[in-house]
Design a protein around this nucleic acid. Structure first.
Lengths: 295, 295
DNA sequence: CGAAATTAATAGCCTTTATCTATCGCGGGA
DNA sequence: TCCCGCGATAGATAAAGGCTATTAATTTCG
């Protein structure tokens, strides 16, 4: 029964019977039969079928919600019992927005000291993808923007505020300033994240409201790429204070506060709302609460 | 998988492999195998076994908690989907303490007007039994004392206050009074509920703290039995105001307020804490909220 | 417009799992 | 000590679940 619900979850993720079957480690006919079996049990079609997958019926969507919960709880149960016996162990899957990646180590490091048998998998994803991954039980926790739109069934631990800095060489234009304005920044060619990232959209918005335009000379979805360009001293970027600090910029690179406005975004840890949480996730939340004040 | 968890729930209820198997509609070896299979999956013994059932291991208790949730959710899912298609239908299982039985009709009647396809099963149970039944998913809602001890994972809707009255014939001792005290009541031979009922224990406590003693001439676990005795005019009882009103006492029987103290107990609807609730239960909660002010 | 490719359903077969009946063996209580 | 109740075990059988191969229905593309 629970396996069938997992089939349905995979189908929702992949929107394709064949790929969903692969993801579940079964063949396509098996997954088809599983879904059909669910439909018989419920007495109602769950999937809109033409000759290909066309989404779920309203009933299907509802079953999907329940499936997320039931499958999530059944995994949580296993982990819970395993933790009772062997202490915390297993794999903690976390996804973070690129600008938060550098601070993940401040959580994982003390966590690992306390629970050495837990392994980590950490993905770099956009904020939207993170919510989707959480929804689909593909990750255990996300680190992303919070406080904007209300986000599904999750618990939230605020971590820190994102203040922005112009990162540039001391001998470049504006390089000698103690602070700059968004209007001034908008005149500089920048290296920025790609527009599918919320960070880029936030920066775009800030530049625009300062009367400027974002004219990035270089875009990437990788902070490491941006950072390595900036380090040459020949490129400039706008980065959150936190990541600029963490990555350790050295002379002649400077990270200059951008004021007017000193825009802030709150970054936080989000985990599935489940009572009780899985032990590994609960420990992560504790760790986040513990270190949040020092960030 | 879910079936196996149901086995475990049945075993917790029945504390006996054979009876649990019966309750699940399978044979004893099937249930044994199911439990053993769970134990293999979890990698840990769940049931303490001698030559007979000896309770659960700590891990077993934990699995049991998860099982309650998972099984509950899976039933809720089915009901939810069925309600999407056919409107509210199915059977709503309610248990109420005896003194609240008479007021159940004030909820069920308007409920039935709105949702004629829902059938009711209503049990008369002690307050302790009600909590246990809720816990084990054997009822969908309970009507019982609230606000005393914190009670498990349930949502609560307060319904009304229980004020006590001396129910007696006008020509009996105290029968002509406008109000009486608990001290006075303690002198009268009474028909009361049996001591396993919380109502009786409450009354005992009140009588005792007024310096008296409860000396019931007649005990029963049935309000109907008490009521029919009182109606003869030859017996007296202490009953909640609500039930005395509802059952319609006629001359020469009087229901005299008992003061000093005018003790109150709050009665409420309790339902499993589940988000979202099953549709039938959600409707019941709505109904309870609606009528509570008028009680 | 027709051939090829894609996608999900179906058919037929086999393996695994689930369940039943019958029986055994351990303990507790008379 | 002797039952008797209880749960585990054995063996047989039914049911479910899964796989490969194929079909049917669209879609895509030449």
């Amino acid at each position: 029964m629970i396996d069938k619900l997992e089939f349905l979850l995979a189908l929702a993720r992949e929107k394709h019977f064949g790929r969903a079957a692969d993801a579940c480690g079964v063949t396509q006919p098996t997954l088809s039969a599983g879904v059909k079996h669910l439909e018989e049990q419920m007495g109602v079609l769950l999937v809109k079928r033409g000759s290909r997958f066309q989404g779920f019926t309203p009933e299907g969507d509802r079953v999907l919600e329940w499936a997320r919960r039931i499958v999530g709880d059944s995994r949580a149960m296993r982990e819970d019992i395993s933790a009772l016996r062997h202490g915390l162990s297993g794999r903690l899957r976390i996804a973070a927005i690129p600008t938060a990646l550098a601070m993940v180590a401040t959580i994982t490091t003390p966590y690992r000291d306390k629970h050495p048998n837990v392994q980590f998998t950490i993905y770099s994803r956009t904020s939207l993808e993170i919510l989707e991954l959480l929804e689909n039980l593909e990750i255990d926790a996300g680190i992303t923007y919070i406080g904007n739109e209300p986000i599904g069934r999750v618990s939230i631990v605020p971590l820190y505020q994102e203040h922005y800095r112009l990162v540039t060489s001391a001998d470049a234009p504006l390089g000698d300033r103690e602070s700059v304005t968004w209007a001034e920044v908008s005149q500089v060619p920048l290296c920025l994240l790609t527009p599918d990232m919320q960070n880029r959209r936030i920066i775009n918005r800030l530049l625009k409201s300062a009367g400027g335009e974002s004219r990035p000379t270089l875009e990437s979805d990788s902070m490491i790429l941006l950072f390595s360009h900036v380090r040459t001293g020949r490129w400039a970027s706008v980065m959150p204070e936190k990541i600029a600090q963490t990555l350790g910029l050295t002379e002649p690179i400077r990270a200059i506060p951008i004021l007017q406005p000193d825009a802030v975004q709150t970054i936080g840890l989000v985990v599935p709302q489940r009572e009780p949480m899985t032990p590994t996730t609960a420990a992560l939340v504790n760790e986040a609460r513990r270190i949040a004040p020092s960030l």
